[in-house]
Amino acid sequence: MDPHKRSATIEIINDTGSVLAVGRYGTDKTGYAEMLTAGRKFQNRVWAVEGSNGIGRHIARRLVHDGETVLDVPAKLSAQVRVFATGNGRKTDPVDAHSVAMAALHSPNLRRVETDPELVMLGMLADRRDELGRARTQTVNRLHRLLLELFPGGAKKFLSAMQARALVATIKPRDPVGKTRRRLTVELIAELEGIDRKIKAADAELRQLVTDRGSTLMDLHGIGPSSAARLLADVGDIHRFRDRNRFASWNGTAPLDASSGEQQRHRLSRAGNRRINRVLHVMAVVQLRHRTTGRAYFDARKSAGKTSMEAMRSLKRQLSNVIFRRMLADQRRREKASPGGHSGTTLDSSVTGLTPHTDPSEKPLPGPANTQANPTPAGVS
């Protein structure tokens, strides 16, 4: 399937790649029912949807809800198939649907789409929390602009609504322009107070949901309720990653091999899940602001000749390992506590006592399969 907001183009092929049917359907109730009927004419069917975490998410979840088996085909994978198949990368909806179908036919390790109501809810609330954060930043920026015009030199950089209100109370302009400016400033302060209340409520709700799910991500230094919710929602089942190197490649913290001949070098990866990469960046920044083992690791890397940016990238790679171990331990504990299992001692996911080293943490490519937690983890807290 090549999905769009209001339409979806499907191509049905058999296990030899022969095209059996092609169709274009609307994504409204009627069009979806027609598409589902067309697909259910074939036994042992599997739906391959391009971008099930993006534009195809709405229709992929509807299919899963209706009991269908759905695979997620990354857009980059289908794009590669399209280029090699046609030779010119010509892009139409039927060509895209054929590329998605062929990519699914010849790719054995595609992720199966599953819907966990708790994770869907966490993702929605994490999105809302991010929106509130952006709205607060925009409001504070507008407030600073007005305060700069009201007070010589403006206000301090990190300004709370209470501090802004106390500052505005000290000035009483007499001219019409000044009075208007002050009124607008008071209105922005009221907006900021409202956003702060919503952020506080959102954080409390996310904290409760993350805790109820049995996650201990918030115990890590630099991971708050919204970051933990984002990790849980976007990662889903941590077992889908063969090892920590696969996880690092997915979140964009694993460097890319750019070696040529005798020159051995790596470059920054700008691929991967950028939202999770941002979570790791915020976690690293928070750790650098305090006396943590993360700060000690960063200083050790700089002492070894790394630049600040290179040391930061190494730290983010280490933090990716820490999060992977923690989520793996949480998942195993959750599985043992589920019906049919029992609670018990979990694998050690402690991340204290950093021993800086670079061998496994800076591998640009995934290594051998290994989902066991390191008995003596060199993590960062």
Rank of each mutant, 00 (worst) to 15 (best):
G26D: 04
G294Q: 13
T69F: 09
E118Q: 08
S227F: 12
G367C: 02
L20Q: 08
T115D: 05
Q264H: 15
R240V: 01
E191D: 12
A329W: 00
G252F: 00
K179W: 00
G222E: 14
G31N: 09
S160N: 09
D116V: 07
H357P: 04
L159R: 05
S349Y: 13
K41Q: 15
I195T: 07
R57V: 05
N277Q: 12
G272K: 05
T185L: 09
H144G: 05
T355F: 05
F84W: 08
T170N: 12
E118R: 11
H65N: 08
A169I: 12
K29D: 13
A284T: 10
G17C: 03
Q263R: 12
L150V: 08
M327H: 01
Q372G: 01
P94E: 01
G17N: 02
G305K: 12
V186L: 15
G294H: 14
F84I: 13
I59V: 14
P225E: 11
A8G: 00
E118L: 08
R313T: 10
S249N: 03
S226E: 08
R165E: 14
R197P: 01
Q208M: 12
S226W: 02
V351T: 14
E50S: 11
F298D: 04
L159H: 04
K316H: 07
M309C: 06
Q264E: 10
A300F: 12
R181G: 07
A233Q: 01
R213C: 03
G67K: 04
G344W: 04
T346C: 10
A75W: 06
M218G: 06
L365G: 01
A135E: 08
K200M: 02
D234F: 03
R213L: 14
R274A: 15
I276Y: 02
R207W: 03
T137M: 10
E205S: 14
